[in-house]
Design a protein around this nucleic acid. Structure first.
Lengths: 172, 172
DNA sequence: GTGTTATGACTGACTGGTCAGTCCGAACAA
DNA sequence: TTGTTCGGACTGACCAGTCAGTCATAACAC
């Protein structure tokens, strides 16, 4: 078994992803993480500094993956919402981790998120100016609502598509 | 000293409300709670059993208050959403506490909540049958979406009213 | 090929501190 | 006096983070 730093780091991050999404930062136990990763405790501190910094690495990785996986077009917000909804259903850890982040780490801003949010809001605003999307609701607010709806666990995809379709529909 | 017992309990619950909404269950510190309440540590265990049970008392009380404070009519869901939104802005602890609850205590079901949710969903379903609300989205899902929108912190009330108005509007 | 030294990934027992929960005695009411 | 409320010192478990040392591999000498 060749020792590879990168592989070991990844095992730790994978284990930490599960632990943090279940228990949050305060509830997570480093001992459980290293047990799951099959390594000694010291490695967490060698590679990541401390528990909180490990959480940040875990969160950034997961969110970046999610942002990259779900394609976005301001022209088809219902489709985007359904895509995000599907992704969350397929990766249930993401929404829990995001929620923990908002509660326990709100002070920090994840670079990947803030950039993607800004980019999407400006695209939506442009589509509103073009008359493709109802301009009654501010672009940033509209995006918040769409994400909130897509994050709900229970609904079926059709309801998500329908609801977002109604939100963006231009009323005469 | 029967009267002062109730007062002391209330001081503890008030203090615990702040502590739990800031740090959740795992992050909350009983020492901080009793310091804020101005009483000894033992009282928490005399009156409430343990930290988790204290959280349940705190959560049930806050949620019951919220449910009672915001009036509901299936005929005016946008108005309900705005009312809920206003309430959350005025009582920012509620939404945080609810989120902690969902993450750390999802197994438990708060009686006040489940009953009110069922009641509201059936009322909405009836309004859909009457043709007052678009029946395309299932009543329970629609309620989830409305609550999700109302829980958002950033939007202005007008946007909330507008959005929910669009969701419920019957399309010809 | 064999012995020797160097490197750094990795371990896990340990430490210092924290925190939930207990318990005993003081204070007070009846 | 007797029962009840209450404070806060105390206990023991737990846990984040550390550190002295192990071990596998590589590199080099002969």
């Amino acid at each position: 078994m060749a020792r590879s730093v990168e592989q070991t780091k990844e095992r730790i991050v994978d284990a930490a992803t599960v632990e943090f999404s279940e228990h949050g930062i305060a509830g997570a136990r480093v001992d459980r993480i290293v047990a799951r990763a099959g390594c000694g405790k010291g490695l967490v501190y060698n590679y990541f500094g401390n528990k909180e910094q490990l959480f940040d690495v875990v969160y950034d990785r997961l969110v970046t993956q999610a942002v990259e996986a779900v394609e976005f077009t301001a022209d088809d917000l219902p489709g985007y919402a359904v895509g995000l909804h599907e992704y969350n259903r397929r990766h249930p850890l993401v929404s829990r981790l995001t929620t923990w982040f908002q509660l326990e780490r709100a002070s920090r801003t994840a670079p990947a998120v803030s950039e993607s949010v800004r980019h999407k809001s400006t695209a939506v605003a442009a589509a509103q100016a073009d008359g493709k999307i109802d301009p009654a609701i501010p672009a940033a607010t509209l995006m918040d609502m769409i994400v909130a709806i897509a994050m709900l666990g229970d609904p079926d995809p059709d309801s998500v598509r329908l609801a977002v379709g109604k939100l963006v529909a231009v009323t005469p």
